[in-house]
Amino acid sequence: MEAVEKISSGSNLKNQLSKPASLGINIFFIIYSLLCIVPLVLIVMVSISDEGAVIRDGYQFIPSKFDFAAYQFLFKDATQIFRSYSISIFVTIIGTTLSLIIMALYAYPISRTDFPHAKFFTFFVFFTMLFSGGLVPWYLVYAQVLDLKDTLLALIMPLLVAAFFVLIIRTFFQTTIPAAVLESAKIDGAGELTIFVKIVLPLSLPVLATVALFQTLTYWNDWFLSLVFITKDANITVQYLMYKTMLNIQFLANNSTAAAAINAAGGTFKFPSETVRMAMVVVGIGPIIFAYPFFQKYFVKGLTVGAVKG
């Protein structure tokens, strides 16, 4: 049993790229990474710009006038923000953990070609990706049949099983786990659950880590469930808390009739300026972006451990 730590094909000294090719790849990625970072920098910069300057001159990478008023405005109600953060964190952690377990448990049986009903259950989950009954019936199930309105469960349950990920996990199980390993375990008399926990899961850490990452993002970025199911602002996630304003703006931009009618009726809109909107983006995604490198550290650990073979 010799454990070989696999990092990348490039780690094999004999199998490295030539210097110029390697340099080329590095330069390419540096440029691409810049393309990805620059817009985020712009968002941060706009969020600390003077409001008037933004409307007069448009977005500037280096604001003509710095102003932190947007953040002061947002954190006037800091208790709500922190409350929403804690709800987001709770929902994200519980949701991701549960969904990973549930999806892996489902994906394993349908990955087994010897399981006669595998095709049916693959179809069973795939079908949900294509057909949906629409918002209203779906809402009725959660609000009336299950009575989950205004509960945290309503923020978790709808996202637990995603057909797309189940099928991805299934495919990884099929391709990365040698049938021989399963056979020998069975001959040793191990039960299916034992095989799954002791053999399949450890061998599948790369895909599990990937799906965990995606689910973390799904839960963290979700605002729609808060919109639909939560009636009291105290219990909404931070994404929705921040996104609400955007939705209000969108509503008026897209409903010219309503906007004109409200205006005529004397409704005044105190919409946050663009600087505040950008600050909201920063507040909404900031923590997860900062948490992401830490996540990744563990993921990479998981990935390398996953490649340990006996």
Binding site: V136, Y139, L227, K244
Partner: peptide, 13 residues
């Protein structure tokens, strides 16, 4: 921003 969705669901349910 949530009004149309919510009021629709409220009435439908």
């Amino acid at each position: 921003g949530a009004w149309d969705d919510k009021i629709n669901l409220m009435i439908a349910s």
